[in-house]
Amino acid sequence: MPSPKPVPLELSDEERRVLTGWTRRRMTAQALALRSRIVLECAKDRSNSEIAEILGVSRETVRKWRARFVRDRLEGLTDEPRPGAPRTITDEQVERVITATLEQKPPRNDTHWSTRSMAAATDMSQSAISRIWRAFGLKPHLVQTWKLSTDPQFIEKVRDIVGLYLDPPTNALVLCVDEKSQMQALDRTAPILPIMPTTPARMTHDYVRHGTTSLFAALDLDSGSVIAEHHRRHRHQEFLRFLKTIDKAVPAELDLHLVCDNYGTHKTPEVQKWLLRHPRFQLHFTPTSGSWLNLVERWFAELTRRKLRRSAHRSVVELERDVRVWINEWNKDPKPFVWTKTADEILETLAAYCLRINDSGH
Results as ranks from 00 to 15, higher is better:
E80Y: 10
T212I: 02
V259W: 08
L347S: 01
R241C: 07
D359W: 07
T23K: 15
L40Q: 14
H313R: 02
H210V: 00
A85G: 08
T111F: 12
P336I: 03
D344L: 01
E156T: 10
T268P: 04
G264D: 06
L186F: 10
H231M: 04
C176F: 01
I132A: 12
D123Y: 03
A343R: 04
S114M: 10
L34M: 15
A31C: 11
Q282P: 00
F154V: 12
E229R: 14
A190M: 06
L138W: 12
S223H: 06
V259M: 09
E238M: 09
V296N: 09
H230A: 02
T78W: 05
V323G: 00
V259H: 10
R96I: 00
N358A: 01
P191R: 08
P107Y: 09
K248A: 04
E80R: 14
Y263L: 14
C260M: 12
G76I: 06
V338C: 05
Q237A: 05
A43V: 11
W65G: 07
H205I: 00
R314P: 01
A312E: 02
K332L: 08
S223E: 02
V316R: 09
E80V: 05
H278Q: 12
D222W: 03
T101I: 08
A301T: 11
A201G: 11
D178W: 08
T150L: 11
V325Q: 09
R232M: 00
Y263S: 09
R241N: 10
